[in-house]
Design a protein around this nucleic acid. Structure first.
Length: 886
RNA sequence: GCGGACGUGGCGGAAUGGUAGACGCUACAGACUUAAAAUCUGUUAUCAGAAAUGGUGUGCGGGUUCGAGUCCCGCCGUCCGCACCA
C-alpha cells in the first residue's frame, strides 16, 4: 500500500501541525500519572539554532516522548535565556534595538525548533527579557534582600576606560579590553552581592546527595566551593602591638616556620611602600606577571625583605623575617602566609633562593634530623619531630593540639576558609534585569515597593556612545523616593544574566500571573527529573541555580533544595576541517624564513575524489594537471588524517590537508547549519543521526556519509511499513527477538544510551527484513515503529496513519514485554580449554551443568585440544561457557 | 603541579570478570539496470593457508584468576577541569 518513498517534506509539517492542533504535548494539569520533568538547558537567542542544540534537544525529546508512552505526566518546556551582551553588541554594530534583535532571533529559532518536531509544551514558553519574567525576578531579589541574603559593598571591577564599561574577567585578554583593546583599569564601584557563601557548607554537602550527576561535575563543584580547614593566627610584629594575620591548613608545622610573607597588595606592604621606592618597584613587578598557567608554572618565586620581623607565637624570642612575595594572593585567606619550607614546595623554592632555614618537623622515616635537604618538600604523612610539645604526634593530632593551644592563649583559632566568594551580580549594562532599588540621599538604598514592580527597561535608548544607556537616559532613573518622597535615582545597574537562569526551571513548572510561581505546583514538579546540557555549565550555572533554589527554600518560598535530580552533560558535534596549506620561502637579506600558511576551506569546496594514501609517493601533478612544488613536504602539513587531498583549486606549492575533527566554528569553516540538512534529509534522519553511533556524553563527528546512512535507514523502515501482510503464521524466533528488543531499547533509553538503542533497532530491522511474511512479522514491524517513534516521530505518525489508526502514535502506549520470551530456549555455549576458546556447542537452555560438561568434553575439537591429558577441573558457567582445565 | 576521564579494526563504537569487534560508516565484489542513482546479496582485525583450520590481537610491562578489553601495580600517550589556594 505504501511502496513509495517516505517524504519528510510533506510528512514533517503534517504531523507537527497535528501535534499543535491536538495540543499533544501540553503539560497535563490534573492527573494521577507519575510526573517526569525533562529539561534541556534553554538557549541564548543568538539568531540561529546550531547543531549542538539539535543534539541536546533531541536527547531530551526522545526521553520525553518515551516517558509519555510509558504512562508519565510529562513536563517538557522550552524558553529563552534572552538577556545578555550579544544583543548590545548587535545594537552597537548594526544600530538595531537589543529588544527587537532578541525577539526576532527568538521567532527565527522557534521556527527552527518547530521544524525538528520536538515534543515541547510551547504553552509554557518564556523569555527572560520580558517583564512578566524579570518582574518576578525583581520580586524574588527583594525577598532575598529582606532576608539579608543581598548586600551592597564597594568592590574592584575591571574597567574599560575607552568603552566606559565594566568588563567580566573573561572579557579581559592580556590585561586589555576585548573590544577596545584599551588597558583595563581596576576601579572601585558599589556592587550588589548575593550571600552564596552563607550556603557554602550546604552546597558542598548537597553535592554528596547528587548521585545521578556525573562525578566529574560533582568534583568540579566541590573544587570550586573549595573548603579548607585550618588555623588563623596572628604573628606579632616584634616591638609593636600590631600583628599579621595568617591562615594555614598545616598548623602542625608551625615549628618549621622560617619566614612570613604577605601579598603585594596587602595593606602592610602598601603602607611600607609609601616611603620605600624599592618596595614600590617590587610591588609593580609582582603585578606585571602574567596569569596564564604556563607563566605561573615557570614564574620564579620572588620576595622583598621588608626588614620587619615577627615573633613566633610559640616562642616570643624566636623572630621570623617578613617578606613581600609574588606568590602570595591577597584574595585568598588573609593575604599572608607563614612559610614552612620543608613541607611546602613553594616555601622551599623561596627558602632556597633567599637562603632561609629549612627545618624538618615531619619525619617520614627514622631520619628526624633538623636540617632538611633536597629540593623536594615532604608533604606526606609522618610523625612530628623537632617541635617540643608536639613531638611524636601524628599530623592530625598535632593540628588539633596547636589549634587548642592557640585558642587557649588567644593568638589564633580554628577556621574554615572557602574558595567560593559571594556572588557579585551588578552589571553596568542595559540589556538585563533592572535591579529594583532606588537611591535616596536621605534614605539610602530603598527597595522598589511591590506595587511598583516590575521596573521595566526603557525602550528609547541609544548605543551610539559608550557606557550604560540606562545611566545616561534623560528621565528613566529619576523617580521619587518611595520612603520620603524626595527626588531620588533608580539603580542603573542590571543583574548578571546568570540570575535569570537560576530559577527559570521553577517558572516553567508554574506560571501564575501575580507571583513568580505557585508553591504547590513547584512541589509537584520539582526536582527536574532529567536535566541535559553542556559541560561548560558544570560550575557557574549549576552552582548558581542550586544556590538560588536553596535560598528560596531558606526563606520559605519553596520546599525543594536541589533543583536537578539527574544531570547529563552531552558531548559536542564535531566536523572534519580542511585547510589549504601553502609553503613559502622568504629571503630577507641574510635571513631565510620558511613559512607554512594555513587557510581553512569549506568542506564542500574540497574535492574528495582525488586522494592519495599517506606514505605513498606524492604525485607530481593532480588530475587537473597542476604541479606540486618540489619543496612541498606533506609531513609538515598533515597532523592528522590519512589522506592527502588535492582539490582542483590547487595552486603550485599548495596542498589541502584533512584537518582535525573538531568543534564546529565559523573560523574553521566546518559549520553545518541544521536548516540545510533538514531541508535535504528531513527531521527524522537528522534526529536519528544525533542519536546514532557516539555515546551521548562523547563528541559526535558529523559526516555526510553518516547522514546518508540515516536517510537510508528512514527509507528502510518506511519500506517495512508497507509490508504488513495480514499473514497468519507465527515466527517464534522473530517474536522472541522483538520482545528482547522492546526490553533492551527501554533500558537503553532510560540510561540515555541512545546509540545502543539505535543499534538494537537496526538489529530488529535486519531480522524483520530477513523473515518470511507472518503474523509475527507484522507485529514486529508495528513494534519497530512504536519503539522508534520517540526518535523518528514523523515517520512513526505517517506509518500509524497508513495502518488506519485514527489516533496519534505519540499517544500510543509503549509495547508490552513478554518476560518469558526474553530467554532463548536453545543456547550457544563457549567451550574453552585452559581459558582458550576451542568450540561452541548448542544445547537446550534448561540443560544442567552435568549435561553441559558432558557435551563439552564430547566435542571433537576439545578432545583434540586436550590431547589425552588428564582433566584437572571443569568450570561450568550456566548459559555461558564450559572451561576445561588440564 | 593537582584532580579527572579515556586508550578496542580504515572510522564512530559494542562487550553484568565468561565466545572481543554487536550496530553503523567506509571500502571491495556480485545482482538488478542500456547506464547511473536507488535497492538487494556477500566480504571487510591481522598473519599463514586453495580451503578446512590454526596462530596473533583491546597503548606498553608486570600481577591476580580456571578465565582479563574489564580488576590490581608501574609506565607511555591523548583529552578535560582547576591552580602560586597557604
Amino acid at each position: 500500500m505504501t511502496n513509495d518513498r517516505f517524504n519528510p517534506h510533506v510528512a514533517d509539517a503534517r504531523w507537527q501541525n497535528a501535534w499543535d492542533a491536538a495540543q499533544t504535548f501540553a503539560t497535563p494539569t490534573e492527573t494521577s500519572k507519575p510526573k517526569a520533568y525533562i529539561l534541556e538547558m534553554f538557549p541564548y537567542p543568538s539568531g540561529r539554532i546550531h547543531i549542538g542544540h539539535v543534539r541536546n534537544y533531541t536527547m531530551g525529546d526522545v526521553l520525553a516522548r518515551y516517558k509519555r508512552m510509558t504512562g508519565h505526566a510529562v513536563l517538557h518546556p522550552m524558553g529563552w535565556d534572552a538577556f545578555g551582551m550579544p544583543a548590545e553588541n548587535a545594537a552597537m554594530e548594526k544600530g538595531v534595538h537589543p529588544g527587537g534583535w532578541t525577539r526576532d532571533n527568538i521567532a527565527n529559532m522557534k521556527a527552527q525548533l518547530k521544524r525538528i518536531g520536538f515534543a515541547l509544551d510551547w504553552g509554557r514558553e518564556l523569555a527572560t527579557c520580558e517583564p512578566n519574567y524579570y518582574g518576578h525576578e525583581q520580586a524574588l531579589f527583594l525577598k532575598l534582600l529582606e532576608a539579608g541574603l543581598v548586600y551592597r559593598k564597594e568592590s574592584t571591577v575591571n574597567w574599560d576606560p575607552v568603552d566606559n564599561t565594566v568588563l567580566a574577567n573573561e572579557q579581559v585578554i592580556d590585561g586589555r579590553g576585548w573590544r577596545s583593546g584599551a588597558l583595563v583599569e581596576k576601579r572601585k564601584l558599589n556592587q550588589w552581592f548575593l550571600r552564596i557563601t552563607d550556603f557554602a557548607e550546604d552546597l558542598l554537602a548537597g553535592v554528596q546527595s547528587l548521585d545521578q550527576w556525573p562525578d566529574k561535575v560533582r568534583l568540579m563543584q566541590e573544587n570550586w566551593i573549595g573548603k579548607s580547614q585550618g588555623l588563623q593566627l596572628t604573628f606579632n610584629l616584634a616591638g609593636t602591638t600590631e600583628g599579621i594575620d595568617v591562615f594555614t591548613t598545616r598548623p602542625d608545622t608551625l615549628y618549621g616556620a622560617s619566614f612570613v610573607a604577605v601579598a603585594a597588595d596587602h595593606p602592610l606592604a602598601q603602607r611600607m611602600a609609601e616611603n620605600a621606592p624599592e618596595l614600590q618597584e617590587f610591588i609593580a613587578l609582582c603585578k606585571k606577571g602574567g596569569t596564564t598557567a604556563a607563566e605561573l608554572e615557570t614564574a620564579e618565586k620572588l620576595g622583598f625583605n621588608t626588614g620587619l620581623s615577627v615573633e613566633h607565637p610559640l616562642d616570643k624570642d624566636w623572630h621570623l623575617p617578613v617578606y613581600v612575595a609574588n606568590f602570595v594572593l591577597m584574595d585568598y585567606g588573609t593575604g599572608a602566609v607563614f612559610g614552612c619550607p620543608a613541607h611546602d614546595q613553594r616555601d622551599l623554592d623561596f627558602a632556597r633562593k633567599y637562603d632561609l632555614p629549612v627545618r624538618r618537623v615531619v619525619a617520614e622515616v627514622e631520619d628526624d634530623s633538623l636540617t632538611y635537604r633536597g629540593d623536594e618538600a615532604y608533604t606526606g604523612p609522618g610523625r612530628i619531630v623537632n617541635s617540643h610539645f608536639l613531638n611524636g604526634m601524628t599530623i592530625d593530632e598535632a593540628k588539633s593540639a596547636v589549634i587548642t593551644r592557640a585558642e587557649q592563649e588567644g593568638w589564633g583559632k580554628g577556621t574554615t576558609v572557602w574558595r567560593l566568594r559571594d556572588w557579585g551580580v551588578s552589571r553596568q549594562r542595559y540589556w538585563g534585569t533592572p535591579i529594583p532599588i532606588i537611591h535616596c540621599d536621605t534614605c539610602g538604598a530603598v527597595p522598589v515597593p511591590d506595587d511598583q514592580l516590575p521596573v521595566t527597561l526603557p525602550e528609547d535608548v541609544t548605543f551610539d556612545t559608550p557606557g550604560n544607556p540606562l545611566d545616561r537616559h534623560p528621565t528613566w532613573k529619576h523617580t521619587p523616593c518611595p520612603s520620603c518622597g524626595k527626588a531620588a535615582r533608580r539603580e542603573t545597574d542590571t543583574l548578571d544574566t546568570f540570575v535569570d537562569s537560576s530559577w527559570y526551571f521553577l517558572r516553567f513548572a508554574s506560571q501564575p500571573d501575580g507571583a513568580p510561581f505557585d508553591r504547590e505546583e513547584i512541589a509537584r514538579w520539582l526536582p527536574v527529573d532529567q536535566y541535559i546540557g553542556g559541560i561548560e555549565h558544570a560550575i557557574l550555572h549549576l552552582l548558581y541555580a542550586r544556590f538560588w533554589t536553596r535560598a528560596l527554600a531558606h526563606i520559605g518560598l519553596i520546599d525543594v533544595v536541589e533543583p536537578f535530580a539527574s544531570l547529563f552533560t552531552q558531548g559536542m558535534v564535531t566536523h572534519q576541517s580542511y585547510s589549504k596549506v601553502s609553503e613559502r620561502i622568504e629571503v630577507d637579506g641574510e635571513v631565510t624564513r620558511h613559512q607554512v600558511f594555513t587557510e581553512y576551506l569549506y568542506p564542500s569546496d574540497v574535492d574528495l575524489q582525488t586522494r592519495w594514501r599517506e606514505g605513498e609517493a606524492i604525485p607530481q601533478a593532480n588530475t587537473a594537471g597542476v604541479s606540486i612544488s618540489a619543496s612541498f613536504d606533506p609531513v609538515k602539513v598533515i597532523r592528522s588524517g590519512e589522506y592527502l587531498i588535492f582539490p582542483n583549486l590547487l595552486d603550485t606549492g599548495e596542498g589541502v590537508a584533512a584537518g582535525r575533527v573538531e568543534k564546529m566554528s565559523k573560523s574553521k569553516k566546518n559549520v553545518v547549519d541544521p536548516d540545510d540538512i533538514i531541508d535535504q534529509y528531513g527531521a527524522d534522519a537528522v534526529r536519528w543521526f544525533m542519536l546514532s553511533d557516539s555515546p551521548p556524553e562523547r563528541d559526535l563527528p558529523w559526516s555526510e556519509a553518516g547522514i546518508e546512512g540515516c536517510w537510508r535507514f528512514v527509507q528502510r523502515a518506511w519500506r517495512l511499513v508497507g509490508q504488513v501482510s495480514g499473514a497468519e503464521s507465527d515466527d517464534k524466533a522473530l517474536t522472541r527477538k522483538m520482545h528482547q528488543t522492546i526490553a533492551a531499547v527501554a533500558s537503553d533509553i532510560e540510561a540515555l544510551s541512545f546509540n545502543k538503542a539505535v543499534a538494537r533497532l537496526y538489529e530488529l530491522t535486519g531480522a524483520i527484513e530477513k523473515a518470511a511474511p507472518s503474523a509475527a512479522r507484522d507485529e514486529a514491524i508495528r513494534t519497530l515503529i512504536l519503539l522508534a517513534a520517540p526518535m523518528i516521530p514523523h515517520l512513526a505518525e505517517e506509518a500509524w496513519a497508513a495502518w488506519g489508526n485514527a489516533t496519534l502514535i505519540a499517544d500510543a502506549p509503549w509495547p508490552m514485554v513478554d518476560e518469558s520470551l526474553l530467554v532463548e530456549d536453545e543456547i550457544t555455549i563457549a567451550v574453552q580449554v585452559k581459558g582458550k576458546l576451542r568450540d561452541t556447542i548448542t544445547l537446550p537452555a534448561d540443560a544442567d551443568n552435568a549435561a553441559l560438561e558432558a557435551a563439552a568434553i564430547a566435542s571433537e575439537k576439545v578432545q583434540a585440544a586436550i590431547a589425552g591429558a588428564d582433566i584437572r577441573k571443569v568450570i561450568v558457567v550456566p548459559g555461558r561457557l564450559v572451561n576445561i582445565v588440564i
